[in-house]
């Protein structure tokens, strides 16, 4: 079962770019997550409304809700996921630039196995990311949250699952771009450009449909932090916030993951190498 993953691991374990990207990613991720309390503390020291901010901090890092908030930060509009996506693009376009995709098939790998191996790498990268978020959340929650009962710690962790889905879908998107374009530099550029283009398309698409666009669908799964404080105290804010993950959003996301994977497989099946 792990054979394909082992093969991919052989390709990656001594590849310097792989380690650089992974370490960079984890570093940036942790920085962003741990920067929030640090920032809040800093503001608190300099602001007059200490109490409100302390309350705010407590709410944000409150245990059950921390999962939602932290995953929101971690998945914000592709800022951090982009590192992982670039890594995915690199390892798939490498196979094309080195033409080792031909060598792999020649040696007895089926085209389906080739895609499956790449998907397994994506799965584990996503797992790594989710684990990192989980650990960070655990640490922050334990140090900041006033509520620490076991049940509250583990409730609402389905946001982590949603995070997993979102990152996984985004990475299959990166895989598809890598397979279609086959050149590293160009693929990365397209990936970055798409981050800019989709909001533009979103502007023109009618309100009801815009959450079906791929990037938006992924982001929509976790689209706002939970700030019940705001809901209760300040009606003038009038911000919509998310109380639950909608199955429709998750469904769309899963469909996209399936679509991208399917396209990658169909494309590679018929292509001359």
């Amino acid at each position: 079962m792990f054979r394909l993953l082992n093969i991919e691991w052989e390709k990656l374990r001594t590849y310097r770019a792989f380690w650089v990207m992974v370490i960079l990613y984890v570093f940036v991720l942790f920085s962003m997550i741990f920067a929030v309390p640090a920032l809040l503390d800093y503001i608190a020291e300099h602001a007059k409304e200490n109490l409100a901010l302390k309350a705010f901090k407590a709410i944000v890092f409150n245990f059950p809700d921390i999962w939602q908030n932290i995953t929101f930060v971690a998945s914000m509009r592709g800022f951090i996921k982009i590192f992982l996506a670039i890594l995915v693009v690199i390892f798939i376009t490498n196979e094309f630039s080195f033409l080792t995709v031909r060598t792999n098939i020649l040696n007895g790998m089926s085209r389906g196995e080739f895609v499956a191996g790449k998907l397994q790498v994506i799965f584990f990268l996503t797992l790594l990311s989710t684990l990192a978020v989980f650990l960070a959340g655990l640490y922050l929650g334990l140090t900041q949250s006033p509520v620490r009962s076991l049940s509250s710690v583990f409730s609402k962790m389905h946001y982590l699952l949603a995070y997993f889905l979102e990152v996984f879908t985004y990475l299959t998107f990166a895989l598809l771009i890598g397979v279609l374009i086959r050149k590293t530099g160009f693929s990365v550029i397209v990936l970055l450009l798409y981050l800019i283009i989709e909001p533009i398309i979103q502007y023109y698409v009618p309100e009801d449909y815009d959450k079906y666009l791929p990037l938006n669908a992924m982001n929509h799964v976790i689209w706002s932090p939970n700030t019940s404080l705001i809901k209760v105290k300040t009606p003038e804010f009038n911000m919509d916030f998310q109380e639950f993950i909608s199955w429709a959003d998750a469904g769309v996301c899963m469909l996209y993951a399936g679509l991208f994977t399917g396209l990658v497989y169909l494309y590679l099946r018929k292509k001359d190498l």
């Binding site: 052989e10 060598t103 790998m109």
Partner: peptide
Amino acid sequence: LETPFFYPYLSAVNNLRIVARIKE
């Protein structure tokens, strides 16, 4: 087939390990 293609950043041994794994 034609020109040989291997992973440039890997040694001969590591490249052959991948081949061996694929062929089981």
